[in-house]
Design a protein around this nucleic acid. Structure first.
Lengths: 251, 251
DNA sequence: CGGACTTTTGAAGTAATTCAAGGGGAGTGG
DNA sequence: CCACTCCCCTTGAATTACTTCAAAAGTCCG
């Protein structure tokens, strides 16, 4: 079966004058969870099936409940994946950066998207339609096992959060949340490990299952103990060890 | 590549005198999430690669943290999958019945098992080693996409619970837990829908993120309102509609 | 420089846990 | 068959961890 090639270009069809971008996309796909280690000519083929999308800060890629029709890989920027309750409360599931997968509902054969994904800054992503993904998997079955790996990891991650939420008090939960953020989006700086994107007390609350007030009080306490320093939507963990101790210890 | 056939039989090598059992295994595999709709000759081949295990009530199939080495499908009986905290508290992830998959860590390429699985009664299951599963997937790639389906569904289920735990009060959480149990293991009876296996107040608490005391009080209240009737490790939901209303409604 | 958002911190309120005690059913072993 | 034990369930009362309410100060942006 022949694959149809869909032309696409970053920033509105600049590919014919700028092959560099396209080539760096391939490098990212090569490192991505889903397409890791595929030969470059295959990546080129896969890339050519994708369409490129830009998302301004605040743009919603898809809403919870939308038909699961498209698979995305982040090229650049940062996204937030969250569940929204009928009452309008938010539960943040995770943040996504370059190389990460979103919209895997279409991979898992689900009808609808389980979360709402929003761009947190000017970002870009590659998009594949459901039928194209199916084609790709038929041709390169390793993609399916890679997808299993990704979903398996995500599954373990929320399993851990479920356990935390069921059994631990808020302070430990917030500590765990911060540790996860530092691991996933930490940037080494002179003063410690900084969370690489703006994150508010409210966001932290929505990740830890608590309120912004409790987060604020807790961070203040930690700051006065020298565990971290923080400002408006900015957190630098100074003492990972002590923070880990808070996360693990009882009492 | 030739597949090696490993002889195995239910109840300790009875297969040569009892082909019926083997044949009914195939019917179950045919209905299972992982191998659904594969032709029977392929199922026979897959079945011949499995070894059969019996588990007495209380037997632990694998512990959280064990090497992820084996994939199981429940033939018969009932199992509980739970996370255990260092402090010894339990969080019940789900119950598993005939046809269901457990130990998918090995499918998802994970090092260790995320949960501890225990038999709740005399049960039996089929077991495949990691390398055998890999062989099967290489030969029949549809198994990998089926696995994606299963894990995707489990993921969504946990996601829903995470949201409930983050945003809802205990009463609604317990209601949701009961509704899920009724859906997954409900048996129609004259008086209503009965949970098909023994389940204690403590179990319900460990599924809902609360204590057995709160569960007991809540069930008592519901019982006096006619929503359900219950006894020692036994629950019959009499009024699903009202229970759904409790689960969905605020206030 | 106004306005919107973020953060901080106190005080009041409360949902749910913890503590405590007693009753009941099921299995075991004498 | 009874006594013993071990869970399971129930219900009150005390406690508490966290939320909610409230107000003010800080910070960014157009």
């Amino acid at each position: 079966m022949a694959m149809h090639v869909v032309a696409s270009g970053r920033g509105g069809g600049r590919d014919h004058i700028d092959g560099m971008k396209h080539r760096s996309d391939l490098a990212l796909l090569h490192r991505s969870d889903l397409f890791r280690d595929l030969p470059f000519e295959v990546l080129g083929e896969i890339r050519s099936l994708a369409s490129l999308r830009q998302a301004a800060s605040g743009h919603v890629v898809f809403h919870q409940g939308d038909d699961a029709a498209t698979l995305y890989i982040v090229l650049d920027g940062r996204f937030r994946s969250a569940q929204v309750t009928p009452e309008g409360e938010q539960v943040i599931i995770r943040y996504l950066g370059p190389g990460e997968l979103m919209g895997f509902a279409v991979l898992a054969g689900q009808e609808t998207c389980a979360t709402t994904v929003t761009a947190l800054m000017e970002s870009s992503l590659l998009a594949w339609s459901g039928p194209m993904i199916e084609q790709i998997i038929r041709r390169y079955p390793v993609v399916a096992t890679n997808a299993l790996l990704v979903i398996g990891r995500r599954y373990q991650e929320i399993l851990q959060r479920l356990r935390e939420l069921s059994t631990q008090g808020v302070e430990r939960r917030i500590a765990h949340t911060l540790l996860r953020l530092a691991r996933q989006a930490g940037r080494r700086t002179a003063r410690g490990i900084e969370i690489a994107f703006p994150i508010s007390r409210r966001d932290l609350g929505e990740m830890s299952g608590t309120t912004l007030h409790t987060v604020s009080r807790t961070l203040s306490a930690w700051e006065s103990r020298g565990l971290l320093s923080s400002g408006r939507r900015r957190i630098v963990v100074q003492d990972m060890q002590s923070l880990s101790r808070v996360a693990e210890e009882e009492a």
